[in-house]
Design a binder for these strands. Sequence first.
DNA 1: GGAGCCAATGTGAATAATCGCGCCTCCTGA
DNA 2: TCAGGAGGCGCGATTATTCACATTGGCTCC
Lengths: 219, 219
Amino acid sequence: MAATDSENQAKVPPRSTPERILDAAEDLFAEKGYSATSLGDVADRVGIRSPSLYNHFKNKEALYEAVLERLLAVFSAPLGELDRGSVTQERVFFWLETIVRQHHANPNLARLLQHAALSGGPHTNELIDRLFSPMFQPGANRIEGAENTLIENTGLQPWAVMAFNNLVMSYVTMAPMYRDLLGQDPFSDAALDNQLNLIRILLRAVFEYKGDAPLDQGA
Amino acid sequence: MAATDSENQAKVPPRSTPERILDAAEDLFAEKGYSATSLGDVADRVGIRSPSLYNHFKNKEALYEAVLERLLAVFSAPLGELDRGSVTQERVFFWLETIVRQHHANPNLARLLQHAALSGGPHTNELIDRLFSPMFQPGANRIEGAENTLIENTGLQPWAVMAFNNLVMSYVTMAPMYRDLLGQDPFSDAALDNQLNLIRILLRAVFEYKGDAPLDQGA
DNA sequence: GGAGCCAATGTGAATAATCGCGCCTCCTGA
DNA sequence: TCAGGAGGCGCGATTATTCACATTGGCTCC
């Protein structure tokens, strides 16, 4: 039903100026980080002069906030979706798959978050809270369907959550480095399948690990 | 004998000015990235004025190169160490453990690399080659001790290499975000143990995965 | 052991470019 | 007609970089 684009009606023919500014700013903030992004670059990409930006956003920080807000709105939906109901291996995987696909479709949130983790910047703490708190909520990620010793016995559960999250996000932020090494466009459909397959394998390990037979040293 | 410093310690060589510049620049480049780091910040941290930097380094880019070179010298040794001999699960784990410990001891390489992956910067391609090529060398990472179907059948081997590498590096670059959520200093010894335990579990999954019983959809 | 010298290393001042940002004017379309 | 949105202009701060200059420490030669 989104097929009303180029032909007949008034909706969405050209994006509005604020939207085009947000688009450009999102890409640039994600690539260079907050402080290294200049408003001149943003304006150039939109096709206007930098003072004109101030007709739409109070200042650089407000523009950054708006970019964050728009990204968070897209990603917040699936993040809280695992809270309700029993957490089975299948549900976790489909939850991860959703997030992976979302990051593939728009890699900018992961990139922005990585910049924030490295260098700080405005609203970093708020950003962390809104993205990560849902995942570490007491009750979230509580495995009920299986007697998983990983969670209860070794106390590694939050570490596993962190690891899988890092896996998904660092794929986006680091993949360009592997383009040559993998011999594949990291954002192609085939690459996405490969990444999902590997995640499935690793997820099985976490779910089925019973704590027996450590590699070669006492736990 | 040569103890003319403060006490009678044998070794307290006061770091030379170039070394102190490199120390400061490494921290700042790792935190803010190349372009967002100002030479004034570097000079301030050393305790000199920024023009004095030019007595020791040709320009900002040369300083950055020197920082990279010094870091690569530390990390290049274990990277090529897996090339020779059979690749067993134990050897891979100890190899990973070495790298993890090195990143914990000096997180700056991972941070610098992450900045380069996101924003580019001088010598990024060279940096990628020198760090990642050894891992993807034909012959490297060739599992001989076990009949691992992951490698040969599913073609996921380079993806697994990439995933574990991302796991190690993104721990360093993202861990600060999890400090509150994990309730632990991510760079403490206890945290390091937890990370190593999880890596061990995931590594077993990759080694022992035989390709049977995909989660719930045909391979 | 001075006198002279040079290279190394620091400094402040100056330059040109770029930055975020405010002011003010002009154009356009409803 | 009129207001919103774009551009021109410019201020003040910061950037990398250069230069002229002061100070040092060690070297040689008498």
